[in-house]
Simulated assay, not measured.
Amino acid sequence: MIRPGLLLGIDDLDGLDAVVVDTRLALTGATGRERYDAGHLPGAAYLDVDDDLAAPPGAGGRHPLPLPSDFVAAVRRAGVSRGSRVVVYDDGPGTAAARLWWLLRDYGHEDVLVLDGGLAAWTAAGRPVSVDPVVPRPGDWDGSPGRLPVVEAEDLADVVRSGVLLDVRAAERFRGEREPIDPVAGHVPDAVNAPLTENTDEVGRFLTDAVLRRRFEALGVHHGAPVAAYCGSGVTATQTLLALRLAGFGDAALYAGSWSGWITDPSRPVATGP
């Protein structure tokens, strides 16, 4: 069932007039582009998280928000126009697709949906994939950022003082026991660990709205108090922002720099343990 501005199921895509975009991201092994070339939803364009949905790494972390001109050009290249309905997908749990979902909404394009379960759900349903190159007719889409809340490193103390800062990485990374990507292990002091894997079921589909609501309430989220989320680089945290929307908590803030941005300043404190 389509949840406007949020999700749609595999069957909902049948006959839907939409621009479909693959945003698969791979930290190891074959690249997202290579995975796309090996098989994608028929007619789907591809946008690369590193090249199209982020600026180069730096003080803003491993995946800073993209320059507006670069992002607009990429979205047009994918065939998106002002009136397009856009469907985005990744391998399954929405961890990369939600980045494009969030960016489009931040730029003022509300008609964007994440395919629930992504490619994994698509193939599990026996649907075909294609290896045919897709070269969309360029769209005329335009937009500018600023519709959704974003926090910076200096804002996080206020968030934890009066609300909840969610760290959506795996528990062992949050505790500082294991850090496979960034040079410093640990978390932002007073953040609450909320692993994003608990937003979806075993096949990568989002849990029901009611279950997600109970989960976030148990983590201290409630209406009227600020909520922000971060991950390693600002990409996968958007999946939790989508889950918060599904749960009825509206638009929580993204700490776009996330952990990789926080640790670029050695004067910032680092916490370890639970």
Score class of each variant (00 low, 15 high):
Asp14Ile: 15
Leu41Lys: 09
Arg105Met: 03
Arg77Asp: 14
Ala26Gly: 10
Ala237Leu: 08
Arg147Lys: 14
Leu113Cys: 15
Ile181Arg: 09
Asp48Phe: 00
Leu16Val: 12
Val151Phe: 04
Gly79Ser: 11
Gly60Glu: 04
Gly273Ile: 04
Leu196Cys: 10
Val164Ala: 11
Ala98Val: 06
Ala271Arg: 15
Ala97Pro: 10
Gly139Phe: 02
Leu25Ser: 05
Leu156Pro: 05
Ala247Arg: 09
Val160Gly: 14
Ser84Lys: 03
Gly117Gln: 14
Ser233Ala: 08
Ile2Gln: 13
Ser267Thr: 15
Leu212His: 10
Arg214Gln: 13
Gly43Cys: 06
Phe71Asn: 10
Ala120Pro: 02
Arg35Val: 08
Val131Glu: 14
His109Gln: 01
Arg245Leu: 12
Ala243Gln: 12
Leu219Ser: 03
Asp190Phe: 13
Ala74Gly: 14
Pro136Trp: 04
Gly61Glu: 02
Asn199Glu: 08
Ser162Thr: 10
Pro64Ser: 14
Val87Pro: 06
Val80Ala: 04
Phe174Pro: 03
Asp91Arg: 00
Thr31Gln: 00
Val114Asp: 01
Ser267Pro: 12
Pro128His: 11
Asp106Phe: 06
Asp48Ala: 00
Ser84Phe: 13
Gly92Leu: 09
Ala256Asn: 02
Ser267Cys: 02
Val75Gly: 01
Pro4Arg: 00
Thr95Lys: 00
Gly32Thr: 01
Gly92Ala: 11
Pro183Val: 01
Thr95His: 00
Asp11Met: 03
